[in-house]
């Protein structure tokens, strides 16, 4: 797969000396769902704003689909779609008029607008209500329309800034569904920011954890979790299997994947680098030894643990800056209508 987003030492210092993004290096491959995870004010939005050409980087370089974000801004703009966290749809226009306008801004032909407009509106389930004023849309509908607008020119890369901020659970899972669909059907690359752990975990192929404008860690959710500690496998035996406890202990400790074995509340607790691979091996060994397993379960370290490990604090403790707080409140207010 080709690299489609590339950043080298990308840096933004705001007038007044605030270092918002601090020498970020990253590369995103075509067709990836890449997540930027971090607290408010970590530099997520600033990074996106630079990549979509809305802000000039203070230092460093970035290329989108091979085009430099400063020298070839026009080219960059036409290959990307940008859906900001502001839910920027025009409420005095109908849903269809919003899309039409967006199509015109990307210089599509009337025919293209007609066919693609229908396609994207059907995808976000708004086709039936396309002729209603956006004023009458709910918050979730507005967000879906906003996403549809970002798709009408069939961008190769879609930038989503906090795509599910303040939305209800159904709408959130709908939006995750669209994002997965875009990747599987159109091979679209998706770059999103979020401060929701579950969103980063379930949706993204790879995650970068960003804090104070720096990337603290980058990798698949699984890699990140493994990097902070192993999977915890717990095994419960049938009552009659108690006699072999010592044997089992020594046998399990010999497994290369197993890091430690403990007994707690008549269960065996095994810490392993890779639970998925270790469990079948352990089970077949236990079976050979004639031990009868009643149940087995595995727990992975959560992304919360990962975040805590790399930034030294929990994501939810973070206090937003006044500006972020204001933006969030505005976005929430619009989302909730």
């Amino acid at each position: 797969m080709d690299v489609i987003i590339e950043a080298e030492k990308l840096t933004k210092i705001y007038p007044g000396g605030v270092l918002a993004v601090d020498h970020i290096d990253l590369s995103v491959k075509e067709g990836e769902i890449f997540g930027f995870l971090g607290p408010n004010g970590a530099g997520k939005s600033t990074t996106i704003m630079m990549l979509v050409t809305l802000l000039h980087p203070t230092e460093g370089k970035a290329r989108i689909a091979g085009w430099d974000i400063v020298q070839h801004r026009g080219r960059v703009r036409s290959v990307l779609g940008y859906v900001s966290q502001d839910i920027a749809v025009d409420e005095y226009l109908t849903g269809w008029e919003n899309l039409l306008l967006q199509g015109k801004l990307y210089h599509l032909s009337p025919q293209e607008i007609k066919t693609r407009g229908k396609e994207v509106l059907e995808m976000v389930d708004l086709w039936e209500r396309k002729d209603e004023l956006v004023q009458n849309y709910s918050g979730g509908m507005r967000k879906r329309l906003d996403i549809a607008c970002g798709l009408i020119h069939r961008p190769r890369i879609l930038f989503l800034d906090e795509p599910t901020l303040g939305l209800d659970i159904q709408t959130r899972s709908k939006i995750w569904e669209y994002i997965r669909q875009l990747r599987s059907e159109h091979k679209m690359t998706i770059f999103l920011t979020t401060h929701y752990m579950d969103e980063a975990d379930k949706l993204c192929d790879r995650i970068a954890i960003i804090d104070h404008g720096k990337i603290m860690a980058i990798g698949t959710p699984l890699e990140l979790k493994r990097s902070v500690g192993g999977d915890l496998v717990s095994i419960k035996f049938q009552e009659n299997g108690n006699g072999q406890r010592e044997e089992i202990f020594t046998a399990l400790k010999e497994f290369p994947l197993v890091e430690s074995v403990k007994e707690k509340d008549s269960q065996l607790l095994i810490v392993t680098k890779d639970g998925n691979t270790a469990i079948p091996q352990i089970l077949s060994r236990l079976h050979d030894m004639g031990a009868e397993v009643q149940s087995i379960s595995m727990k992975r370290p959560s992304l919360d643990d990962v975040f805590l490990f790399y930034t030294g604090r929990q994501l939810r403790d973070e206090e937003a800056s006044p500006q972020d707080f204001y933006r969030m409140r505005m976005a929430l207010r619009r989302a909730k209508r």
């Binding site: 026009g74 940008y82 900001s84 505005m330």
Partner: peptide, 13 residues
Amino acid sequence: RFGYLNKLLASPI
């Protein structure tokens, strides 16, 4: 204020 300007500016107009 409502973010629409950024939407316009991110497009190739």
